[in-house]
Structures are given as C-alpha cells and as structure tokens.
Design a protein around this nucleic acid. Structure first.
Lengths: 294, 294
DNA sequence: TAAAAATACTCCATAGGTATTTTAT
DNA sequence: ATAAAATACCTATGGAGTATTTTTA
C-alpha cells in the first residue's frame, strides 16, 4: 500500500537527485531510503528515476509523480490546519448547496460578505438542484441549502431571502421588444416558452406555469434549459420567449431584451436547513444572512 | 506521522459509524482499527468521533476530515492512474506556461484541439509572465511556453504562432471614435497611454514604445495594467487610450471602441521550449500546433 | 579510484490478532 | 442482557540501521 511517508521521501529525493544527500537531509541512512523508493516504484509499477550508479534523473512519470506528491502533501498540510482549528472551535465549516440561479449575484455576495466579516466561518459550496439539496440536507451532506421554496418537508426549515418578479425575455426583433409599458402574459399564449427543466417539485417551473395560467393559457413547452444563460441564448436564437426572474436581466446579450409583466408572480429564493443539524455555524450563518438582506 | 491507511480506515469508519462493522468490512478485527483511529486523533490533536459505547457520531472536525480523506484518496487514485499510463508510454504529460493575453482565444482553442485529436496528451497549464516562463523553461518546471518573442536566450527555441497588428482602444466619446478610416498613432501624442507593466524584457511593452516612436513621440505612461480586460476598463473610465493587440477587441465594453491604425506594428505570440528537454511530447505538441496554425 | 547506489544481515518498533473487560442502553 | 468500544497482552512483519559489495564515470 502507498504511504504518505513514501510521497515525502520521494519528494526529497527528487529535489536532491541524490539518494545519499536526500537520506542525510531526512536524518536517515541511504539503504532504507533506496528501499522505500524501490517499494514505491513496485507499487506504482513504474520507474520514477533513471538510475546510473553515478547520478539519477527523474523519468517523465517521475516528474508527474513529483507534482502529485508535492500537491498532495501541501493540500493535506493546509487542510489538516483547518481541521485542527475546527476541532479547537476556532473555525467553523459550513457546507452550502445552491441552485444555479444564485451563482452570479447572491452567492458571491454572500461569500464575500462572510469572508470579510466572519473569517472564522469557512464555506464549502457545491451546486445542486433543489431536489438534490433537500436530500443532501436530510443526510447531512450539506448544512445549508439555497433553493426555491416551498418544500413539503417538515424536517427542513426555510427562510425566504429574496423575492423577484418574473419578467419576460424577448428577441430584440420581437414585435413587443420596443414597447415601454408592461406586457401582459396573455400576449404570449401562442409562443414557444423556454423553461427550466420540469423536475419533481420544481417551484421555479411551477411559477412559470402559474404565470401562464394568469395569462389564461397552458404553455407550449418544447425547449428547456438548466442554466439561465442557456435560456437567454435560446431566446437570442429566436427559439422562443422565456419568463425569467428579474436577476436574470443581468445577463446581457445584444440580441435580447427584458420587459416587465403586468401580471405579478414572484420567484422566491430561500435558505433551508435541517432542524436536527447541530452545527453551531448554521444559526450563525442564518443571522449573517439576515444582516445582509435587511 | 499521518498514514494513508489511516485516511482509508477513517473513511470506512465514518461511513459505517460503527467500529465493529467497519473492521469487518476492512477484513480486520476491531481493536487495531480503534487503535489506528485513536492514533490519528492524537496526531491531529482533534477528536473525530463523539463516542458513547453504544454508538458514535462524527464531530464537526470529523465531518471536515471526512471530506479531506475522501478527496485526497480519490485524487491520489486518479493521479496514480495517470502516472501509470505515463510510465507505460500510453500517455504524455506536458506542462505549459502561458501569458495572460492568450487565455481567451488561443489557449482554449489549443486545449480543445489537443483533447479532441490527441487524448493521449495530458496538458497541465499555468499562467506566468514571459520572464517567468523563460526561467521555468530553463529549470524544467514547464515544457512549453506561450509567450511574446524575441527572447535573447540561445538555449530556448521559439516558433512564432501568431502575428497581430496593434489597434487602438478608445472611449466611445473620444473625438476619433466615429472615424472610419485608420487613425495615425501621432494623433495620440498628447494622450495618456495605458500599457502593460514594463517588466524587464517585455516585448509587448516594447511593441507599444516602437509604435509611439513611429508616431513621433514618447508615450506618457502613468497607468499600467496586467490584464487586458483591466486595460479596457480603464479606457472605459476615460483614464486614457490604449494600444492593444487585435485579439483584445473580443472584449466588448459598451463604452469602448476599437480602431485600426495607419502604422503597422505587430505583436507576436510564440511557442518556446528548451532545446535540451527530452520529453517526447514536446515535439508532438509543436507539430500539433503547426497543424492548427496552417 | 572515488562516489554513489545496491545488497546482505540484524534488530526492534509497531500493526494487527486474540482474549477479556468495561460501559451504556 | 446485550451490543459495542476499550484494554491487555502476544506475535510477527517489515522499517531502519550497519557493514559490505557493486557499478560506472
């Protein structure tokens, strides 16, 4: 089996390109060092050094393995530092799941604010769908979700942190693209509507459906896209129109315009957490977010 | 000292939350497993499990250490796979240094082309200045540089892969912003010129100086920026004008226009490699690039 | 011939096994 | 009473040391 000791020995030998000197710098004798490197090479099934009895050089595989050893050792060192701080209660770690829609505005804002004001709070973030987040919250894989409520799950608490009205995204040559007054949803009853994927319990998708209902029609859905910028690109390619939350209008595309709607439906974004989670940072984080949104 | 075995043992225990069952799944008995975990905790100086004799749970530090163990083990596994392939000559690795100016066009083009056509060539890329690249080429830290020639260093070979004329980047309200014919460099003799940093031997900077000489003046340099998009932002903020290579005009900024110049000076981009480098992938890579540029 | 790696061997530290005790539910 | 972790003790693998040989520049 591979051992960390071997990575370290190898790193030192690769830096000295001389077993005897490397052994000296490791405060050990040369034979066991040679032995460990040989064992490492046997484990990998790969020669790491070109050996002549006078001098050694790294093979191509050895050069690559040097990078591995280097980065593995330094990563471990840094991460273990963090573990020690968490253990001493000097640092908190929170695992945060988020949906794609907050990547470009809310999430960086939150991360910067937390890093600046609460350097003792280390955030690990990963992208999920809302459904995946609920699962991950339940099995403790994440501490906090940033998702679209409502959830019909009693064990998960939520706190609404943003309400955005839906607006419509049109191609610049669309007949309504130059109107200045808000548009009625009913004007689009014969258009192809580009939506997010209709996953089980997707409130974002449901919001679009209820918007169309207010306009008196059921949408013709032939195109869906996971990412907001893909939806915008589809509109730019004249594949249809799209109802998007206000924040999407940050995505600038020269073939696309955004227009307000007469009918008001709101897309909510919420924090979610498992009520049985005992990580003390959860409530710290929630109170920080409350600071931001007020 | 930390051992990889301990990371693995810990991972399994954390997944079972039960020493006896974890030991069974590891084909070992429970006491030595408990002993190794205890040793690990002593090494870290941190409790990883909350123990009662009936059941155990992960501490917050333990949860974080689980992530470390997980990712360290899987990274090592993947990377070792690559080392084995390199060792067998089934895969080549090339370390490539590049200057900032190729990030948005040439570099992605090269990476995609290579990944698609030569999946056996694994590229590791890292950003450097031209001067740093020359150093890294000499000490073998990188195999290939993508930089601005000429280099006055005989041990480094170069191959020019792109020539771009300099154009001028102006604020949209600049008096010349609406001209259609090419502009003379001399028109800008009284303007503040935004440049890249004047590092030792920067041919990019030198190109701008010789451009100004053609216009019959020495530039007034008060502002410099490392990144192309920063230079464009400075122009957008009316802090001056900038002479930029043609590829920079890909950076679209609604307050900025790009205009051709009467005087033609070219910024070159070249591949560079150490003539004593024996990595067989170097010449393979060079021949691939020749395919792209012809 | 000299410098460095490989080989041969010895020893002891420690990983892991078995048997047993402790503890909390 | 029982399931699970901790403790005590034993064994043997293998890591590291010393002495020596081999290799080639």
């Amino acid at each position: 089996m591979l051992e960390i000791k071997q990575l370290y020995y190898f790193k030192i030998v690769a830096e000295h390109l001389n077993f005897t000197k490397a052994a000296k710098s490791l405060n050990m004798s040369q034979p066991p060092l040679s032995y460990q490197i040989k064992k490492l090479e046997e484990y990998l099934g790969v020669d790491l050094f070109n050996r002549t009895n006078k001098y050694i050089t790294l093979t191509e595989a050895g050069k690559y393995f040097y990078d591995i050893s280097q980065s593995t050792l330094s990563n471990l060192e840094n991460q273990i530092d963090i573990v020690k701080q968490i253990g001493k209660g000097e640092l908190y770690n929170l695992k945060i799941g988020f949906g794609g829609s907050v990547v470009h505005d809310l999430l960086p804002e939150i991360i910067h604010y937390v890093k600046f004001k609460y350097p003792k709070l280390e955030l690990t973030v990963q992208q999920y769908t809302t459904a995946q987040q609920v699962l991950a919250l339940k099995n403790g894989e994440i501490d906090i979700g940033i998702l679209v409520p409502p959830l019909n799950d009693l064990s998960i608490n939520t706190l609404s942190i943003r309400q955005e009205e839906f607006i419509v995204c049109l191609h610049k040559n669309h007949p309504f693209a130059n109107k200045t007054e808000p548009l009625s949803v009913s004007s689009f009853k014969n258009e192809c509507i580009i939506t997010p994927p209709n996953e089980a319990g997707s409130s974002y998708f449901d919001g679009i459906i209820s918007l169309c209902k207010l306009g008196g029609f059921s949408p013709d859905i032939t195109l869906s896209a996971q990412e907001q910028h893909t939806m915008v690109s589809f509109v730019a390619s004249k594949l249809g129109i799209s109802f998007v939350p206000y924040s999407t209008s940050r995505i600038i595309n020269k073939n696309v315009v955004y227009k307000k709607l007469l009918e008001k439906v709101y897309k909510e974004t919420a924090l979610a957490w498992n009520s049985t989670n005992h990580n003390p940072a959860v409530h710290l984080f929630i109170s920080i977010i409350k600071e931001i949104i007020t």
